[in-house]
Design a protein around this nucleic acid. Structure first.
Lengths: 198, 198
DNA sequence: CGATAAGCGGACCGGGCGGTCAACTTGTTA
DNA sequence: TAACAAGTTGACCGCCCGGTCCGCTTATCG
C-alpha cells in the first residue's frame, strides 16, 4: 500500500515540539489559540505547522486522539479492577486530571475531522458504558443513571473550576466528589427526565 | 445631573428588537455570534447596533444585567420561603430554566464592562450565599458545601446538556437533579479540597 | 406644516485569523 | 562530498470580525 517513509530527524523533532506547544497553548487559551502563537511557542515557522497538520483541526484532532486513546486504554484496564465503584471513580479522576484541557469540549467540536478520532471516541464511550454498568450492578451507582449520563458529567468538574480566577490546580477534585456523590445510590431522588442517547 | 431625554419611538422599538435578537443569537451560537448577524436578525443596520450599545460587550452586558437582576430578585423573594431546601432547588431550577443561555459563562467573561453588572452580580451572589446558608442550617444541604460551590455548579446542568445534539429542552433538569443530590447531606463523602473564594 | 435634531444604514477601515507558496536550508544517501 | 529530496520559513492572501462615519430618513414639536 503506502510504505510511509520515516520522517527526517528534524521533522520528527519539530512535530513533537509542535504537539507539546499546541497542548500547552490550548490549555491556556482554549481552542481559539492561534496557530501563529503555537508556532512561536514551538520555535518554528507557521508554515511548518501546516506541513505537519494540513489544517488547524487536524492538529486539534491529533491531540484529542492521543488523549482519548489513553483514556480508553485506562478504562479497559479498570474493567477488571476488584472494586467497580472505585474503578469508575478512578477513571473519572484520571480523566479530569488531564489538566491540559480547559474542558474536554473539543472532544465533541472538531472530532469529525479524523475518522480515527471518531473511532477512538466510540471505543472509549463503550468502555465507559461498561464501567458504569459494572459499578451499578455492584451497587456503587444509583439505578437510574446511564453511561451517557456519566460521559456528559465527566467534563463538568473542569468546566466549573474554569470560573475561579486563581483556582488551585486540584480544585476540580472537589466538584468531582460532589457530582460523584450525586451518582451514588444513597439518598438518591428520582430523576425528572429520561436519559439522553448519544 | 443628566436629564435623560426619552428615546424616540422608533429608537425604543429598535432597541427592544435588538435585545431580543441578540438574546436569540447568543442562545444559538454563543457569545461569538457576530454583531452583523444580530443586526440582520433584528432587521436593522449594523450601525444601529452600535448607536444603542457602544461596544459588543455593552450589548452582552445589557442582557446579562437583565438576567442577573431577575435572578437576584427571585432569590431575595425565596429567602422567606417556608422550606429552605426547596427554595434553593427552586432558585437553581429557575436559573437553569432561562434556556436562552448556552451557559451562563458570559456572566463572568465580559461582566466587568458595566459596573452595574458587577454590582448586580455581587448582590445576587450574596443572596445565593444566604439561600445556601439557610438550606444548610435547615439540614437540607451537606455541611461542607458553600455558597460559592453552588454558584459554580449552577451553570453545570446547562453546560453539560450542550453536548447532546438533539437534546430535549428540559434535559438539564436531569443533571440538576443529580448534582443537587450530590449537595444533600445523605450519603455525603468528605470533600478532598477546600472551597474556593470568589 | 416646516424645521431641526435624533436616529438610521451600510460602505468602509484596521487587525487578526487560517491557510498558501516559492525561495531557501538541511538531513540523507551513495 | 556532491546532489537531491525533504523540510523550513515568513511574506502574503482572502476572509470575517468589531467598530467608525457620514449622508440620508423620519419622529417630534412649535
Amino acid at each position: 500500500m503506502t510504505p510511509p517513509r520515516p520522517l527526517r530527524a528534524d521533522a520528527a523533532r519539530n512535530r513533537a515540539l509542535l504537539l507539546a506547544a499546541a497542548a500547552d497553548e490550548f490549555a491556556e487559551h482554549g481552542v481559539e489559540a492561534s496557530v501563529a502563537d503555537i508556532a512561536r511557542r514551538a520555535g518554528v515557522g507557521k508554515g511548518t505547522v501546516f506541513r505537519h497538520f494540513p489544517t488547524k483541526d487536524d492538529l486539534i484532532a491529533a491531540i484529542v486522539l492521543d488523549r482519548v486513546e489513553a483514556l480508553g486504554r485506562l478504562g479497559e484496564r479498570l474493567l477488571s479492577a476488584k472494586d467497580p465503584g472505585a474503578a469508575l471513580l478512578e477513571f473519572l479522576t484520571e480523566a479530569a486530571h488531564q489538566r491540559q484541557q480547559r474542558d474536554l469540549s473539543f472532544l465533541q467540536e472538531s472530532g469529525d475531522a479524523l475518522p480515527a478520532v471518531v473511532e477512538a471516541r466510540t471505543r472509549m464511550f463503550a468502555t465507559i458504558h461498561a464501567l458504569v454498568d459494572r459499578a451499578r450492578e455492584h451497587g456503587a451507582l444509583r439505578d437510574d443513571v446511564t453511561g451517557t449520563d456519566v460521559i456528559l458529567l465527566m467534563c463538568a468538574p473542569n468546566h466549573v473550576t474554569g470560573y475561579v480566577p486563581d483556582a488551585s490546580p486540584d480544585l476540580w477534585q472537589r466538584y468531582l466528589a460532589i457530582i460523584f456523590d450525586g451518582l451514588r445510590p444513597e439518598g438518591a431522588h428520582a430523576l425528572p427526565q429520561p436519559p439522553p442517547a448519544l
